[in-house]
Simulated scan of single mutants.
Amino acid sequence: MTQNEGEPLVAPSSTDHPLYGDIVEACRTVYDPEIPVNIFDLGLIYRISIDDESNVEIDMTLTAPGCPVAGEMPGWVAEAVEPLPGVKTVNVQLVWEPPWGMDKLSEEARLELGFI
């Protein structure tokens, strides 16, 4: 795989990777403190990549750049994923492109927030 400037070194994993479902569920245990919905269903997780040695890279964003927990939330995600059996390392990167919007909400999040 070639790398263009600003692109991650690890390609996104397919959703059928054995660890993918557990990582998603771990991300669902992390909540934005201002919104009563987990960060996965909020659409804040943009990429989960798992290499052949079970090193995990996650790109995530926040609902707003000025989010008061911007410095803490990537650590919360790493702390949720690191203890999973089979995970070797976890690197969580905060990204701002594309910007988060309400269109990223899952159907479950829309229902929880009363948009459906």
Rank of each mutant, 00 (worst) to 15 (best):
G6C: 10
G6Y: 11
G6M: 14
G6S: 07
L9H: 15
L9E: 15
L9F: 14
L9C: 12
V10Q: 15
V10E: 14
V10M: 15
A11C: 07
P12T: 05
S14A: 11
S14N: 11
H17Y: 06
P18V: 01
P18W: 15
L19G: 00
G21W: 02
G21R: 09
G21S: 14
D22R: 15
D22L: 14
E25G: 00
A26D: 11
C27G: 15
C27L: 09
C27A: 15
R28W: 10
R28K: 15
T29Y: 01
T29W: 00
V30C: 10
V30N: 11
V30L: 12
Y31G: 03
D32L: 06
P33H: 03
P33R: 06
E34W: 13
I35C: 04
I35K: 06
P36F: 12
P36G: 11
P36W: 13
V37I: 11
V37T: 13
N38V: 09
N38W: 07
F40K: 07
F40P: 10
D41M: 02
D41P: 02
D41I: 08
L42P: 08
G43V: 02
L44N: 05
L44T: 05
I45Q: 07
I45K: 09
R47V: 12
R47W: 05
R47D: 12
S49T: 12
S49A: 15
I50V: 11
D51F: 08
D51K: 07
D51L: 08
E53G: 01
S54M: 11
N55E: 06
N55F: 03
V56K: 09
I58V: 10
I58L: 02
M60S: 05
M60N: 04
M60P: 06
M60W: 07
L62V: 10
L62H: 01
L62C: 01
P65L: 00
P65G: 00
P65S: 00
G66D: 01
C67T: 02
P68Y: 13
P68F: 13
V69I: 15
V69N: 05
V69E: 10
A70C: 03
A70I: 06
G71C: 06
E72F: 12
E72M: 13
E72H: 10
M73T: 00
M73G: 04
M73N: 01
P74D: 11
P74E: 08
G75T: 07
W76L: 10
V77E: 02
V77F: 01
A78I: 07
A78K: 14
A78L: 03
E79Q: 13
E79H: 08
E79S: 12
E79F: 08
V81T: 09
E82R: 10
P83F: 08
P83C: 03
L84E: 02
G86Q: 06
